[in-house]
């Protein structure tokens, strides 16, 4: 490029024809260059240098800390599962700091810091957490419009145990759906197959059919999430699996917003 520049200067002093030739060359070069890399771009392709998919809490692993055997006792404070990840340095006590979160990360580099997550979990189990839980439960029960939480608790076992356990799960789900219920079409319906492991942990959620109301689907998923925190173990320590049809009780409640 520089040499060309020089040639232009000398060319000017030498002869007009040479100048013309060189200018033509420059023009063609520019035309060619402009085609390859236009000088004016009305719309820039926007790009992100990097997008990190941060780990999120596994919806199903959330309550694994809960003891499966508890059945009749009032539900213990569910353990708030901290999302396994690094924290901003400003928040945490010095020993908890693992990595500064806001350092530009070249790519997906931060594996879930499980040790740290455990520490966080411990912090959460503090008295403070328990106080919050009490408030939380109170608020949650306020949202419920009625119905005892004791309905349909599973019996000790026997031939009817399966159906009784089904009633119990139904009751837990209905309590939760009261809290989350929301829909935007007239008669939404979502059919979900739930699998509950012998320890009471919700091990499988499969939406079998849906009428297509995204709002109600979300309500159902959140209700399952909410209810599964309180599932007890199925009778006989077996895997429980059944289909559940979720519908809003629409007779009394308005549907439009």
């Amino acid at each position: 490029m520089n040499s060309r520049n020089l040639r232009i200067d000398t060319g000017m002093s030498v002869s007009f024809i040479a100048s013309a030739v060189i200018h033509l060359a420059v023009f063609l070069l520019l035309a060619w260059y402009g085609r390859l890399m236009p000088l004016q771009t009305p719309i820039q392709e926007t790009y992100y240098v990097d997008v990190v998919n941060l780990p999120t809490a596994n919806p199903q692993s959330g309550d694994s800390a809960q003891k499966p055997a508890e059945s009749e006792a009032p539900p213990p404070p569910p353990v708030l599962t901290p999302p396994a990840m690094a924290l901003p340095p400003s928040v945490i006590s010095p020993k908890a700091v693992s990595k500064p979160a806001m350092v530009p990360v070249p790519q997906k580099s931060e594996a879930p810091d499980t040790a740290f997550a455990e520490r966080m979990a411990k912090l959460e189990r503090s008295a403070e957490a328990r106080r919050e839980e009490a408030v939380f439960d109170k608020l949650r029960s306020k949202l419920k419009t009625g119905g005892s939480s004791k309905i349909g608790m599973p019996g000790a076992g026997g031939a009817e145990a399966g159906s009784r356990y089904g009633d119990y799960i139904k009751s837990r789900l209905e309590d939760a759906l009261k809290v989350t219920s929301s829909y935007s079409t007239k008669n939404p319906e979502v059919v979900v197959r739930l699998t509950i492991a012998p320890d009471g942990r919700l091990s499988g959620v499969k939406i079998e059919r849906s009428s297509g109301d995204a709002t109600f689907e979300l309500a159902v998923r959140r209700a399952i999430d909410l209810a599964s925190a309180k599932f007890t173990a199925p009778p006989g320590r077996t895997v429980y699996e059944n289909g559940f049809v979720f519908k809003p009780k629409s007779i009394s409640s308005g549907t439009s917003r």
């Binding site: 490029m1 060309r4 520049n5 100048s19 200018h23 420059v26 023009f27 520019l30 890399m37």
Partner: peptide, 25 residues
């Protein structure tokens, strides 16, 4: 890239100012 663009723009400007040839093009 930016400096290339500037350089080329500079060349074109000088080319256009020094003679009318580019205009013909």
């Amino acid at each position: 890239k930016k400096s290339m663009v500037l350089l080329l723009a500079g060349i074109s400007m000088s080319a256009l100012l020094t003679a009318g040839c580019a205009n013909k093009e």
